[in-house]
Amino acid sequence: MADVLQLLIGGIANGCIYGLVALGFVLIYKASEAVNFAQGDMLMLGAFLGITFINANGADLPFIIGLVAAALVLGAFSYALDRFVLRAIFGQPQFAMVILTIALGFILRFFAGTYFGYDPVSLETPFAGDVWRFAGISIAVVDVIIIFATCALTFSLWLFFGRTRLGMAMQASSQNQMAAYYMGIPVKRVNSIVWGLSGVVSAIAGVLFAAKGAIEPAVGLLFGIKAFAAAVIGGFGSLPGALMGGLLIGVVEQFAARYAPSGSAQIAPYALMLLVLILRPGGLFAQIAQKKV
């Protein structure tokens, strides 16, 4: 029993990071109907920024200040990315954006590798190695922090989209760009803002990820696809759904690694996603209806 609980907590903590990256996807998708295939690489950049700001041989800032600095820098970077690169294909079919972000991911990976090096590095945190024990299970403090941060972030983003004027404007501009223009929404600027916001979220995810394990430039692609699976399972376009999908994938992966035959742990998340897609094409929190003429 303790064994199962232990796996469950580890899975939830991993799942939270998948969920955070998936949140980044969903944010952009909700506001601009674009799918950002470079999201995993933004996480990687965020993690490296965090390491630069926080580690002793970097800027040596306190953890919280370093986290905020990384989030601000990556947020500004992705705002600029949208403003100066992605805006050029504004209004083009969705597929163009997919190709463009895949290509951007390659370039980000190249620059990160050249600048930060290809060796895995990890973040030095004040709570590294701290463990709480009770009732036969041990919980790493970093896992607890990840879980709380994720829940808080998801909840505030959900409030932001549902309750604030800017959030509403984002939803409107994704559903019908032209109508949103007519309603007086500066659609292009709204898009850039949401990219910036997504950058902030992926910086936080990246720093938390680096606090848990080592990071290297190549981590982005596969991590991005896994987070993608999380977003799909939850139903693209639903914030709580993205978190749920992330948690599901994290937990399934842990249990498959423990109990299922070897080699199936890597497949499990994708098999789960295919299953969900076939049985419930819109994801668990579906937002897509049959297309009408």
Partner: peptide, 9 residues
């Protein structure tokens, strides 16, 4: 061109 959603909500 303008993008139109496939989501119907």
């Amino acid at each position: 061109s303008y993008l139109k959603t496939e989501r119907m909500r």
